[in-house]
Amino acid sequence: MARPKPPAAPTIALTPEDAETAFYEAMASGDVGRMMSLWADEEDVLCVHPGGGRVVGNAAVRASYETILADGGIPVSYEAVHRLQRADVAVHHLVERIAVDTAQGRSELRMLATNVYLKTPLGWRIVAHHATAAGPDDRPPPEPAPTTLH
């Protein structure tokens, strides 16, 4: 009989960006323990997966990610981050890019995601993650043109 894996030690995220990077790395590697070490230890944390309902509480969020990542990690990257930050809370809105294999070859799904972070004594922690399918008009804005020429 295999021993259950001990819970991952909390990841200390010094900034919301550190927490976000670690969250997506954990998702890509399929490491539910590491992912959950980034969530706040609050029973009112919540997560909404694309096409799904609201999942509330650490145990329910963990169970949802255990199901999603049962076959391994998700090849995900992100871009076009818009940030709002105050002393102890940060909200990031971004575009997730997920690589998927189809009968026609490799394709990409785009999701709009909102991540909310709270500053705690153990660093920045996720308190909410909400992702939904991006529409055809939800493309990242083009990079601004340089204002100076050298």
Rank of each mutant, 00 (worst) to 15 (best):
P136M: 07
A70P: 07
P146G: 00
D137W: 06
E43G: 12
V91S: 07
A134L: 06
P4R: 01
Y78S: 07
A99S: 06
N115P: 10
A113V: 11
D101A: 14
L118Q: 15
A26H: 06
A22S: 05
P4A: 00
S64Q: 09
D137P: 04
E108M: 11
A59I: 11
A70T: 05
A19W: 04
A9W: 03
T15N: 03
Q85D: 10
M27A: 10
P142M: 01
K119R: 15
D137A: 07
N58Y: 13
P7K: 01
A28P: 04
Y78C: 05
A128T: 12
A2M: 06
H129K: 11
R83P: 01
P10Y: 02
S29H: 11
S107K: 13
R86F: 15
M1W: 00
A133M: 12
E79K: 00
T147P: 00
G57T: 02
L14H: 09
A63F: 07
V91F: 10
M1S: 03
A2E: 04
L46T: 14
E79I: 00
A70E: 07
R34L: 13
L46D: 10
V55G: 11
R110M: 05
H82S: 12
G33R: 09
L118Y: 13
E66W: 10
H129Q: 09
A131M: 08
R54M: 14
W39Y: 07
D137C: 02
S64Y: 08
D137I: 04
H130L: 11
K119S: 15
I74V: 11
S29W: 11
P6R: 01
A26Y: 07
E96R: 04
D31I: 07
I74M: 08
I12Q: 12
F23A: 01
P75Q: 01
E42H: 15
G30Y: 04
P6Q: 02
E17K: 06
P7V: 05
I12L: 14
L118P: 13
M35A: 08
I68L: 13
F23L: 06
A2L: 09
D41R: 15
V32G: 03
Y65N: 08
H130D: 08
W39T: 09
G52V: 13
R110F: 02
T147F: 00
P121K: 15
A26Q: 05
G51S: 08
L109S: 05
T147C: 00
A9L: 07
P142W: 00
H49V: 11
G30T: 03
G33P: 13
H49R: 10
V56G: 06
V127M: 15
R139A: 04
T132V: 14
